[in-house]
Amino acid sequence: MAALDPKAMGKLIATGATTRVDAPATKPKFKIGDRVAARNLSPVTHTRLPRYVRGKRGRVERVHGVFALPDTHAIGAGRSPQWVYAVTFDAAELWGPQGRGAGRLTIDLWDDYLDPA
């Protein structure tokens, strides 16, 4: 691999890079308003499913599009592109009685992190 010169580097920074798939071959599993549950998963490698949402129930708020799944992308196991949704949880669902007054929380979750609820 040749080193990028400043011109090429500048161009790439200004363009950015995303794992978004522009013309997805699949349809989203969920639509806005659907009730979903975050799966309870504990992979020993990388995941973007934090512990505090695992097993918790929320609602799909936005459908963002299709992106590489970090779990496989981080370990050289391919991009496994799939749909990502903004899922909203009540603070009380996440934190129990101590979550009162903490409103709602939204986090972006991939198909593999979700089940219908």
Binding site: I13, H73, G76
Partner: peptide, 16 residues
Amino acid sequence: IATIVGGLFNDDEFRQ
């Protein structure tokens, strides 16, 4: 930036 943009690794590998 130079190494990630240069393709030596991806962001998920870096986070891991």
